[in-house]
Design a binder for these strands. Structure first.
Length: 104
DNA sequence: GTGGTGACTGCCA
DNA sequence: ATGGCAGCCACCA
């Protein structure tokens, strides 16, 4: 259920980001990354910090950043506002801003 | 109940 | 390193 996704997204710490696949898995739908995405778009206005959920290959989705086709600009703004830094070459340095469910 | 679609991901060319 | 194709899972028609 989308609610499960929301629950997971909501527990992402401020200043950290998670991938769709990660959210899907934690929500109880391993491999259903696409579903997570669908849930995100549906979450618009649901008070869910969807901006903290990004695609693992956020840099190469058909030649462009996946963060652009959507409300990419808005999302980026929000994330930067939380302290997440963007790299022009790698998008978001998951190595540092990737959310680890353990350091919750 | 069957078929098609998608804010994804991973492997192959 | 970039571009394309196939596989996944849940939801809507």
């Amino acid at each position: 259920m989308h609610r499960d996704m929301y629950r997971v997204v909501r527990r992402i710490p401020r200043g950290k980001v998670a991938t769709y696949g990660q959210v899907a898995e934690l929500a109880g739908y391993p491999g259903a990354a696409r579903v997570a995405g669908a849930a995100m778009k549906a979450s618009a206005g649901s008070g869910v910090p969807w901006q903290r959920v990004v695609g693992r290959r956020s840099k190469t989705v058909g030649r462009v950043s996946i963060l652009d086709p959507i409300g990419g600009t808005t999302q980026r703004q929000l994330l930067e506002g939380e302290g997440v830094e963007f790299s022009d070459s790698d998008g978001i340095p998951m190595r540092r801003f990737g959310w680890l469910p353990v350091d919750d």
